[in-house]
Design a binder for these strands. Structure first.
Lengths: 217, 217
DNA sequence: TTAATTAGTTAACCTAGGTGAATGTGTAAC
DNA sequence: GTTACACATTCACCTAGGTTAACTAATTAA
């Protein structure tokens, strides 16, 4: 499969996890992210944290490989990851771009243990907090707020994919591009344009042209 | 909102539910549909059935109105329903077409009690089995197999919307049309072409042209 | 530091699908 | 019945985005 050659899978890098330099600040971001959706006590959060491990994914390293089961769900502390499929014609399609303070995984594979349909890869070296399937279930069973949180996460993933279909059908590529950079301005600096183009469903040349038209105006 | 005028909402028709003529056969289909995913005992199924009510939705009647909360999830015994949004430009986009032996609702609204983003309407007079939110929760709490079944239903809805995005990005309208009628041949007889076109993300004229090209070959 | 890749831009040309308008067809309403 | 309206087809023309290819940055590897 094109692109996979020469890049080691994350699995190899999982065990040697190093303690964080700025541990407090980073988990703070995760705490806010969760607390934004469900109210959790600090004790519950600490218990949850003990179930996670924080690792560094190097640029272009794989977090999930298409065909293997997604064993983790990840919260991005710093950095950017993206997920994509390669269809039977050999075209790559970016499905998700996940910036700092967002979650990423192949949720379906993670939940069902079925082989993943996506590759998930780091766009830049990123620090991510991992929750394994096993500990995910532990957290859901022992901390009711987390069960609720993850249910919301899944629901939101579903809704945003529905919204994306509506956007594809109802808006031109230019409109979708403008919407994207308006809601996620950081994406321009941190994500190569060819991935943004793919996410929007167009070719890199077309995105170039669209940008030219926009800035000529 | 265009299309809504003169068509009564389902809510008005909910109470006078009539007993089914061919009750046994119909619930049989539902039993198979559930049992296909999770193994349930006949007693559990009967308990589940007692939580549902079967009604008739007349042609063009609304099952869910955009903006109001989806109070029910429906299993289609006979007939066809479809869901759609109307975006801010006034364009209608068909999001789901649900034939006999399928489930339909606005899952997000149903699960969260948020206002629905979709209209769900009967394409032809249909006989549907309804489960209310209240009884959905009862079923999930008292019958573990049902909790599992509905979790699977939600997961599948999510995956199929992801797959749809891949299909839109990687295939031409003609390819998507061929794929659709191959997997759901019944759709041609029971769904007006303009809805099929909208579901595929193209205009009715374009679908006509595509069909012409196909059958000229 | 340089060679080799990978990413981005531009331009000429092509094509799938959109648009608008005319025409036909089936079916519901009176 | 016939009037009306919603659906389908066809055609001529238009346009957003694809394709190919040449050229220029940027990165990365050696």
């Amino acid at each position: 499969m094109a692109g996979v050659i020469g890049v080691k899978s994350l699995e190899l890098f999982l065990l040697p996890l190093k303690p964080l330099a700025n541990g407090i600040k980073m988990t703070d971001q995760l705490y806010k992210n969760i607390n934004n959706k469900v109210k959790i006590s600090e004790e519950d959060f600490k218990e949850f944290l003990s179930l996670t491990k924080t690792i560094t994914v190097k640029k272009n390293e794989f977090f999930i490989n298409e065909g293997s089961t997604a064993k983790y769900i990840a919260f991005i502390n710093t950095g950017v990851l993206y997920s994509y499929t390669i269809n039977n014609k050999g075209d790559k399609h970016v499905m998700q771009i996940a910036l700092e303070n967002h979650w990423i995984s192949d949720l379906f594979s993670f939940l069902t243990n079925e082989p993943s349909l996506f590759n998930v890869q780091a766009i830049e070296t990123s620090e991510i907090i991992l929750l394994s399937k096993e500990n995910f279930e532990k957290a859901c069973n022992t901390i009711p707020a987390f069960e609720r949180f993850f249910r919301l996460l899944i629901q939101n993933a579903y809704v945003s994919s529905q919204r994306r279909i509506s956007r594809i059908y109802g808006n031109s590529a230019e409109e979708r591009y403008l919407k994207l950079i308006k809601t996620h301005p950081k994406i321009i600096q941190s994500v190569p344009q060819l991935y943004i183009a793919s996410y929007l469903g167009i070719k890199p040349q077309s995105l170039s042209r669209i940008r030219k038209n926009l800035y000529d105006k």
